[in-house]
């Protein structure tokens, strides 16, 4: 287990370094970084000042080292568009996005695990079809349409939750349900397939041979094994959710990272973009590492290899 962990962590650090080089290169790939930073219609004097401020005339390696050093201390420079320190900007938005992502994931799991287990236990019957249909609708319905329906019913008709904005926990309910339902199908399919596979295994027959009640056989012996691949999907989805809830965040005017990333691209706000790319990649790296560890715990066979 120790060696396994050390290997995983070493790999994660390597990937993180590689990603930081890419994020750094992002700006340089633009050709003349100073012109890019200065934006359209900047005067030669402006550009000269930028070259001076950012040290763009120094060798790339030195620039990278400086940038990485600063980044490690939390200094990502100043946003060109918002005229605020990038770090401050990100910190102010990251909480909203993470909250939304975690809530959505929770909703997706709370929906997909029971649906997947039911569908697998009664596979081929009408129960299976109903469960699959409920889950499939999540993907078939465009998320903006579901968002609209939810807003009409729960915000406008019932006035239970606000239709948009960021302020309180109520603001997160409708976006999280929309997003959670949208990502339910892949989880549900994975749980169903994993359960069908697990239930056909000899060890499930052994568990039944012990005279255990059906729910113990299904929920302990089969589900534990069926959940191993789900952990991997959770981490991938969490990464995607943190990076990619642009649509939902803008529909509900939820002020998160996805929206910030979108803005920084449209305003060519490179310091912000660099930081967001680096941050999101690191989230991925860390989540993958975590999933490896959890997987090792769930599947003891992985621990030795």
């Amino acid at each position: 287990m120790g060696i396994y962990l050390a290997k995983r962590i070493g790999l994660a650090v390597l990937v993180a370094l590689f990603v930081s080089i890419l994020a750094f290169g992002l700006l340089r790939l633009q050709g003349n970084a100073a012109t890019a930073l200065a934006g359209e219609g900047a005067s030669p004097q402006d550009i000269a000042i930028i070259v001076e401020t950012y040290g763009l005339d120094r060798p790339l390696v030195v620039q990278y080292a400086t940038w990485l050093g600063n980044a490690l201390t939390g200094d990502f420079g100043t946003s060109y568009f918002f005229k605020r320190p990038v770090a401050e900007l990100i910190v102010s938005k990251v909480g909203n996005t993470v909250t939304l992502a975690v809530l959505s994931l929770g909703i997706a799991l709370a929906l997909s695990i029971p649906l997947g287990v039911l569908a697998a236990v009664y596979s081929g019957s009408w129960i299976d079809r109903v469960c699959s249909l409920i889950s499939l609708m999540g993907q078939a319905l465009p998320s903006f349409f579901l968002a609209l329906c939810l807003v009409m019913v729960f915000a406008i008709q019932l006035r239970m939750f606000p239709a948009s904005g960021t302020g309180s926990w109520q603001h997160f309910v409708l976006p999280a349900v929309t997003l959670g339902y949208y990502i339910t199908p892949p989880f549900m399919r994975l749980v169903r397939a994993g359960m069908i596979d697990a239930l056909s295994n000899d060890y499930v027959r052994t568990a039944r041979a012990k005279g255990l009640p059906a729910h113990r056989v299904v929920l302990k012996h089969a589900l534990r094994n069926a959940l191993v691949p789900v952990v991997g999907l959770v981490t991938v989805q969490l990464g995607l959710l943190i990076g990619g809830s642009v649509v939902i965040e803008s529909i509900f005017a939820l002020d998160g990272l996805g929206y910030l990333a979108y803005q920084s691209i449209s305003y060519r706000d490179f310091p912000v973009l660099q930081a967001v790319v680096l941050l999101l990649s690191l989230v991925y790296v860390v989540l993958t590492l975590l999933s490896d560890i959890v997987n090792a715990w769930l599947d003891p066979r992985l621990r030795v290899s």
Binding site: D202, Y203, T206, H221, R224, N225, L298, D299
Partner: peptide, 15 residues
């Protein structure tokens, strides 16, 4: 009680 032909797969790998 019953024991089976395949001891390799009759035990649950997760416990």
């Amino acid at each position: 009680v019953m024991i089976f032909q395949e001891p390799m797969t009759a035990l649950n790998p997760a416990f």
